[in-house]
């Protein structure tokens, strides 16, 4: 296993950790933290994909920077929606929010 495959394994582990956190937690803030970790996994996969003989390329770096920008923006938007939901329903539990919405 070379460095590129090693980074891909780490990227897969990060992505799965975030996915598992989103699927199992009952707190909206923790869900967004899981989403953040999924973004990191995607960024690391993009970075590892651009390695040529262990050297980074400008194309993959550009993709990583764009992905960081988009991920942070989406995350900030999700956190603002969490605040709106908390002010409206008074809880961070998504199941309770769903129950209160009906």
């Amino acid at each position: 296993m070379n460095e590129q495959q090693l980074l891909q394994v780490f990227a897969a582990l990060l992505f799965l950790s975030g996915f598992g956190a989103i699927a199992t937690t009952k707190n909206l803030v923790k869900m967004i933290m899981g989403f953040q970790v999924m973004i990191w996994g995607a960024n690391l996969a993009l970075f590892a994909g651009g390695l040529v003989n262990g050297q980074v390329t400008f194309f993959s770096t550009s993709l990583v920077v764009i992905s960081i920008s988009i991920g942070a923006s989406v995350e900030a938007l999700a956190l603002s929606l969490v605040i709106l939901a908390y002010r409206r329903y008074g809880t961070l539990n998504p199941w309770e929010i769903r129950r209160l919405a009906h």
Binding site: F47, V56, T61, A72
Partner: peptide, 19 residues
């Protein structure tokens, strides 16, 4: 460490700082 200093610093500034 891989030479992508701009992406690394941008990541630190964005996630360790702003987020």
């Amino acid at each position: 460490a891989y030479g992508a200093a701009f992406a690394g610093l941008f990541h630190i500034i964005t996630f360790a700082g702003a987020v």
